[in-house]
Simulated assay, not measured.
Amino acid sequence: MTVESPAAAHARGAAVIGPIHAPKASEIFADLLRQKILDGEFPEGQPLPSERSLGEQSRLSRAAVREAIGILKQQGLIVSKPGRNGGSIVTRPTSQELVASLQTYVRSQGWGADNRTLLEMREIIEPWCAAFAASHRTDEDLQRIRQRLDQASASIDRVEEYVSAGLSWHAAVADAGHNVLLSAFMSAASTPFLSAADHGRYDSLKARKSTLKTHKAITAAISDRDPQRAFDLMARHVQGSEAPLLENLATTLENDTAATG
């Protein structure tokens, strides 16, 4: 009996069923445990049942159970605690783990400081970071922002140090808004900008002085607890000499419409 290949069946117009990729038992079990953890059936700080018990309950091999637990460890939902009362303890991912995960993703993309995705993210997020900082900052937050500003001012003649201090200032502004997600995104996005310290935008002393002046104005708005002024100043700052994002989107749409006629 000759078995017809999918390509031959497709060529004669017959319905074709492609290969089926079934998930591994360990992945399915990891999904089940993850859902129970997120639903609170396994509260934070509580140890999971032993591998033997989980294997008996699920009727999976110890190897599959161990692999499922390993998946959850990578996701920051379980930590291993040694000792007599140790085992697999339920936990929650920390903000540091979130930042590390985002940084790994951004670095793996090989994006530079002029990457469109990063620039769009900054234009969307940073004005709100400044507004939240003006609204939510503490005296300690303001002190950190001013310290980063002073560091940038002191290194105005040294490009790499200046850019590093400037990015630290942006991070301090994001942190002052007390929104973990915004801070994580800003921290992850800083790496490509830091690695491009010789970027043309900062080559001239005039440009560095202009940026520092803007940072000072935004810091003053944050100090005055003026969210609208902080938002507007940061929005103009991250747009730089480029057209604002909405203008770019409108232009792209017009061009696409004209091309498709």
Rank of each mutant, 00 (worst) to 15 (best):
P6G: 07
A7E: 15
A9H: 09
A9C: 11
H10S: 15
A11S: 12
R12Y: 05
V16D: 08
I17N: 09
I17K: 09
H21V: 12
A22T: 10
S26V: 01
I28Y: 09
F29D: 05
L32D: 10
L32R: 13
L33D: 05
R34T: 09
I37W: 03
G40Q: 15
E41S: 14
E44A: 11
G45T: 10
G45E: 12
Q46W: 03
P49D: 09
S53R: 11
S53Y: 07
Q57G: 10
R62H: 12
A64Y: 00
A64G: 05
V65M: 07
G70F: 04
Q75G: 11
Q75L: 05
G76S: 15
S80A: 13
N85D: 15
G86K: 10
G87W: 04
S88F: 05
S88V: 07
I89D: 12
I89H: 13
T91R: 13
T91L: 11
R92A: 09
P93Y: 10
S95H: 12
S95V: 13
Q96K: 14
Q96Y: 13
S101L: 11
S101C: 12
T104N: 15
Y105R: 10
V106E: 06
V106G: 07
W111A: 06
G112Y: 07
N115F: 07
N115K: 09
R116D: 14
T117N: 13
L118M: 13
L118W: 08
L118I: 14
L119H: 12
L119A: 11
M121N: 07
E123V: 01
P127C: 07
P127G: 03
P127Q: 10
W128K: 10
C129R: 00
C129A: 04
F132I: 00
A133K: 01
S135D: 08
H136N: 11
T138A: 04
R144T: 07
R144F: 01
Q147K: 08
D157L: 11
D157T: 11
D157Q: 14
V159R: 08
E160I: 01
E161W: 04
V163P: 01
S164Q: 09
G166N: 06
S168G: 15
W169A: 05
A171N: 14
A171Q: 14
A172L: 05
G177D: 02
G177P: 02
H178V: 05
N179V: 03
V180N: 11
S183Y: 04
A184T: 09
A196C: 00
A197H: 09
A197L: 03
A197R: 01
G200C: 00
R201P: 03
K209A: 02
T211H: 10
T214P: 00
I222T: 03
I222A: 06
S223W: 06
S223V: 09
Q228P: 00
A230V: 02
H237G: 00
G240S: 09
N248G: 08
L253N: 09
E254D: 07
D256Y: 13
T257A: 15
A258H: 05
A259L: 14
T260A: 14
